[in-house]
Write a protein that binds this DNA or RNA. Structure first.
Length: 738
DNA sequence: TAGCCCGGCGTTTTT
DNA sequence: CGCCGGGCTA
């Protein structure tokens, strides 16, 4: 064991692993083996005879937590069920369920996600008769979430606003107050509550705190730069007795301040724990020297940082290249061109395109689709945020807890039951008057101000839900329940009747959901409906990165954190887009943009492409751009004197672009940069020649042996290497040229 | 009640 | 440019 623990580690990693007693801060730069150090450290603690149940490791994402568990298990070749590796939120959710009885909390509390929060806020605004134009729902959700991140209860926020004599903030504080009341009434906690209530509980009950402090002798926090105040206090509380707290992070990768993360938590760690040891992991195992030095050039421009410089033994001559485009289509085309030119020798999953805003993805999608480059768009619309999924989940939630007004309102008229806005409004008024939930209210429809038709419709809805409440009592599985919902509610029928490509995807998604529910039941110990609902509330990445599919990855820079790719394109590097204009007047925000750039750059293993476009259309408005300061800071000079104010962009239609490289270094021999024939395949009507070799995602390699039709009706007959002969419609066949 | 039209608005989103 | 939400009309 000892040997394994040191053999694979470099000196600073060994130092970090072996320093078990007392506070420790590990500055772990990008690609320096951070997860490895944490997992080895846990294994080391166990090898010293430390009890597994006295170790707590906290991460931010489920992905990180499960990865860590997996790697610890591999390392010590056994599983420790008592080893506590989890996210902040699931740790707190678990804690609160266990201790619920001591703080008069229903242990079956719901967990509200962003949508639930928004809907509840909408109700609050209506109830308080507040001008919806002045108070935007999402702003308020954000404000409330930030307050919770800062451990501020409604009363705190109210008195703060009173002191400041700020009517706007005061209104928000009143909304917060009502919002919190509503959550309490339905028995729901939002993400912020999970942390805040945990902290509050521990602060109020010293004996309990003492017990947990005694239990968790060794605490480790991953991505410490992303902790908010509540999480910071939580850790401080838990670690106060033994002081064996090890935080791992990288201030240069702090990019979530807008969500409450406080970079000062990591910067001031040594102030909090004056006897803290600090270890810097600076040897990078990911990127080429050129990428590392260029990324350093950029991040060095930040003032608020602790200096670290990554180095590598890697002698690869991979490169950083600036690509100048003429507009966003040109940008996408040039990138598609480079990818397709090199796709024959590199897997597509080795390429990634990063952008600052989600709206930039569209051009890439269009271009890649036309170019026949398979791509995976990450993060835009997450599985559990799709309407059809949210609808079915709302049914499950309502069955789990009929008093959940948010879910009730979501599905009361989905599919259409003839219960319109006015009916719902008068039902709501009635419920408010009687101080009961909507579910309770529909049992008394005759007393409310409702038409006969509405009463009848509500009654049949009530009976429909009642049948499921019965099923729940009989412990019928969540899978069966959800199947019955989908069919008996008429939801599926409505989608089938629609019979559009969209409705078909929706049906597929619902089937996927049901199989996910089934999976859950086979996997989990807590097979109840409530158990499933908690699980999904704390999970999001069902359909994120599927590495088995060979596709180019498209995602925002924020989502790129923690990942790596051989070839990375960072796009839209223009002043006003990246850094985004909102940030340029504020140095703190600008530094965060710069860190985001640093994160993006350090994802690249071999080649890094920095792309910018002189012209870009955003929201229908076309703007002229100058290259991002980050390009300049990276050491690339752009000669403005040569560029005309109003150049003639007619050349956009040229068949062959040459990716304009304003500054090029020796680039990787393995990667061709000059423009090949691919581009003409995008621009001309028919790139598919008889005799051409193509690659199909499922059938594999084949030769085009016949073609008919034109443009979107172009049909091909392809003879595949497995002997199959297929008729394909070129537009949708997703063929790649090889 | 439901469907249509118009106006406003538009960074990033681990849980 | 597109999406969403509110208000108006059939």
């Amino acid at each position: 064991m000892k040997e394994i623990l040191t053999k694979n580690l470099n000196p600073s990693q060994i130092e970090a692993v072996h320093c078990t007693e007392g506070p420790l801060i590990i500055f772990a730069g990008a690609g320096t083996g951070k997860t490895k150090v944490i997992t080895y450290r846990i294994a080391h603690l166990l090898s010293l005879g430390i009890a597994p149940w006295s170790i707590l490791a906290v991460t931010f994402t489920n992905k990180a937590a499960s990865e860590m568990k997996k790697r610890v298990t591999n390392l010590i070749s056994q599983t420790h069920r008592n080893l506590w590796i989890s996210t902040f939120h699931s740790f707190c959710a678990y804690f609160l369920r266990i201790e619920a009885s001591k703080i008069s909390l229903d242990p079956n509390f719901l967990i509200y996600d962003f949508m639930d929060q928004k809907n509840t806020i909408k109700d609050c605004i209506k109830e308080l008769n507040i001008d919806e134009k002045k108070f935007k729902v999402s702003t308020i959700v954000n404000k409330i979430s930030r307050a919770k991140d800062d451990l501020k209860f409604p009363s705190d926020v109210v008195s703060e606003a009173e002191q400041l004599d700020n009517p706007f903030e005061f209104t928000i504080s009143k909304i917060y107050e009502l919002y919190q009341k509503k959550l309490k009434k339905t028995g729901a906690l939002d993400f912020g509550d999970l942390i805040m209530q945990t902290v509050a509980t521990l602060q109020q009950l010293p004996a309990m705190l003492e017990r947990y402090q005694e239990k968790f002798k060794y605490i480790m926090i991953d991505e410490y730069q992303d902790t908010n105040r509540a999480q910071y206090i939580l850790i401080k509380l838990l670690a106060r007795k033994h002081h064996n707290v090890c935080v791992v992070g990288d201030d240069d990768q702090s990019v979530y301040s807008w969500r409450g993360a406080d970079i000062n938590n990591i910067l001031n760690f040594k102030k909090d724990y004056p006897n803290a040891k600090s270890v810097k992991l600076e040897q990078n195992y990911r990127s080429t020297p050129k990428i590392l030095s260029t990324a350093y050039q950029v991040v060095k421009h930040n003032n608020t940082r602790i200096d670290k410089q990554l180095w590598t033994e890697n002698l690869d001559n991979g490169s950083v290249i600036v690509i100048k485009a003429v507009n966003e289509n040109d940008e996408a085309t040039k990138i598609a061109n480079l990818i397709s030119l090199n796709a024959y020798k590199h897997k597509l999953s080795n390429f990634a395109v990063f952008y600052r805003t989600n709206s930039q993805s569209r051009t890439f999608e269009d271009t890649f689709r036309r170019a026949g480059i398979p791509y995976a768009l990450i993060g835009a619309l997450r599985f559990y945020e799709r309407t059809e999924i949210k609808d079915i989940i709302a049914y499950l939630k309502l069955i789990n807890n009929p008093n959940d007004n948010v879910s009730f309102k979501r599905i009361i008229n989905i599919p259409r039951r003839g219960i319109g806005k006015t009916s719902i409004e008068s039902l709501e008024k009635f419920a408010l008057l009687k101080n009961i939930s909507l579910w309770e209210a529909i049992h008394l429809t005759s007393q409310a101000d409702l038409t006969k038709g509405a009463q009848k419709a509500l009654n049949s809805f009530m009976q429909f839900i009642e049948t499921f409440l019965e099923l729940k009592k009989k412990d019928i599985s969540a899978k069966i329940i959800s199947e019955k919902i989908v069919t008996h509610s008429g939801y599926l029928k409505e989608l089938e009747a629609e019979n559009t490509p969209e409705s078909k995807t929706k049906i597929e998604n619902i089937q996927e959901l049901i199989s996910a529910i089934n999976d859950f039941q086979n996997r989990s110990q807590n097979k109840s409906l409530a158990g499933y609902l908690t699980q999904i509330a704390l999970t999001s990445d069902t359909d994120s990165l599927d590495e088995s599919k060979d596709k180019v990855t498209l995602m925002t820079l924020h989502l790129a954190k923690g990942l790596e790719f051989e070839y990375v394109f960072i796009c839209g590097l223009e002043e006003g887009l990246f850094p985004i204009w909102e940030s340029v007047s504020n140095n703190e925000e600008l530094e965060e943009e710069r860190r985001l750039m640093y994160v993006g750059m350090t994802r690249a293993k071999k080649n890094l492409y920095l792309c910018w476009s002189t012209e870009r259309t955003i929201y229908g408005k076309t703007r002229w751009n100058i290259p991002s300061r980050f390009i300049t800071e990276a050491g690339f000079k752009y000669d403005f004197t040569g560029s005309k104010q109003n150049p003639n962009f007619k050349n956009t239609n040229k068949k062959h672009f040459r990716a304009e490289v304003i500054c090029e270094d020796t680039y990787n021999n393995d990667f061709e940069i000059k423009t090949g024939p691919f581009l003409s395949t995008i621009k001309t009507a028919n790139p598919y020649k008889v005799g051409a070799t193509v690659l199909h995602p499922t059938f594999g390699r084949g030769k085009i042996i016949e073609q008919s039709g034109t443009r979107e009706n172009l049909k091909l007959i392809v003879l595949f290497e497995n002997g199959q002969q297929k008729k394909l419609i070129a537009k949708i066949a997703n063929l790649r040229f090889i």
